[in-house]
Amino acid sequence: MTQSLSGKAVTGARIFDGHAWHEGKALLVGQDGHIEAIVAEADIPPALDRVALSGGLLVPGFVDLQVNGGGGVLLNEQPTREGIAAICRAHAKFGTTALLPTLITDRPELTVRAIAAGTEATRAGVPGFLGLHIEGPHISLARKGVHEPSHIRPMQAEDFDRLVAAVSAMPVVMTTLAPEVVPPETITRLSAAGVVVSLGHSDAGCDTARQGAEAGARLVTHLFNAMSGLGHREPGMVGNALDCGALHVGLIADGFHVDPVAIGIALRAKRGPGHIFLVTDAMSPTGTDMTSFRLNGREIFRRDGRLTLADGTLAGADIDMLSSVTFMHRRIGLPLSEALRMASLYPARAVGQDRRIGHLQPGAEASMLHLGDDLALRSVWIRGTELEPSGH
């Protein structure tokens, strides 16, 4: 049976609060589904009911800022509240408790429909819905990736107004754009209005990319992919992403989009206070046995852990966030605590939501996971309410 943690003390697991580990402690959850304290078990208030976990780890729920689809649903194909809810449900099964459904470059009317759906999802309190990521269409044709070239275009006044109006309708509105396509003054105006601007799908040189960051862009979309590379005379988008401390940088950790050697180099090179964080860039097959699907009328194939067009172009990723964390810990060799931060605290911080999600300190939502010592997922809670049956 599922259970609510509201007004209860959770015991029996090592607790990672997003910053440090706690042994032999209890997590206290208030009636409002927010964390009140982490205390010694001897200090649990007598009036509180206890939820005893059988060992394992209690960690922050994952935050994914780039989720094109899941559970058989692609946002571009089903831009509705129901579509958003299905995507959120699919990724909750892999530990993601907050996400940005992502609309890939499409017709203007699809953006209108996606924003309307996001507005409805916010009003309905869809569990796990954090806002929208509008990826394109104001990007570079030279670095389009899987984006349909016929829909790529400059930003018009109505595009700007549409994004800004959405800011008041949902917690996060994020857009990926190319700084050589959208001028710095427009980036400044978007940022000032509350739109989270990410640089990506860009062939810009390092100086142009830096101007975009100085104008107000805060993130970089899927490092190394669909961007100008790091050269010794022209550092490109990659060079700016790693050198600019203010930028938070997304990374797809599936072993296909970025080679493990390049991941290690990037982690060592990234200047702070911004961090590299994990995104899945997941498509509709996540959580299903689908072998193909369609995007903008083109068939995309699922084979050997990859999603590709017929010509081999990567088309999103066939990975979930828990697998990404496991990859970073076991394959790249990061301490588990840092791999967990890359999937929770760092992305929450990147979009200014780290007061309420991404960690388990007092005041945060009790959105968290119970993992086994082997990192197998046992339970998922969003704001103190369990979404999946307990496995303990």
Rank of each mutant, 00 (worst) to 15 (best):
S4R: 12
S6A: 15
R14M: 00
W21P: 08
G24R: 06
G30H: 09
I35S: 13
I38L: 15
V39S: 02
A40M: 00
E41G: 08
G55H: 02
L58E: 11
G61M: 05
F62C: 05
V63A: 07
Q66W: 04
Q66I: 06
G71W: 04
G71N: 03
G72I: 09
N76E: 05
N76W: 04
E77L: 09
Q78R: 11
C88A: 12
T97R: 04
L100S: 07
P101M: 01
T102K: 00
I104T: 11
P108Q: 13
V112C: 10
T119R: 15
A121C: 05
R123M: 05
A124Y: 02
V126P: 07
L130R: 03
I134G: 05
I139C: 00
A142N: 15
H147S: 08
P149Q: 09
A157V: 15
F160M: 09
L163G: 11
V164E: 07
V172D: 04
V173C: 06
A178N: 03
E180F: 06
V182Q: 03
T186F: 00
I187N: 02
T188H: 12
S191F: 10
A192T: 11
H201R: 12
S202L: 11
R218Y: 06
R218L: 12
A226E: 11
M227F: 08
R233Q: 13
V238D: 06
G245S: 10
L247M: 09
L247Q: 02
L251M: 13
I252P: 13
A253S: 15
G255V: 08
F256T: 00
F256C: 12
P260Y: 00
P260H: 03
V261I: 07
I263A: 08
A269Y: 06
A269V: 07
A282W: 01
M283I: 08
G287Y: 03
M290L: 15
R294L: 04
N296P: 01
N296A: 15
T308D: 03
T308M: 03
D311C: 07
D311K: 06
G312Q: 12
A315L: 02
A317Q: 07
A317K: 07
D320I: 02
M321F: 10
M321Q: 12
S324C: 13
S324R: 07
V325I: 13
F327S: 11
F327M: 08
G333P: 05
E338R: 14
R341W: 09
M342L: 02
A348K: 03
I357H: 12
H370I: 01
H370L: 13
L377M: 10
P389S: 14
S390A: 14
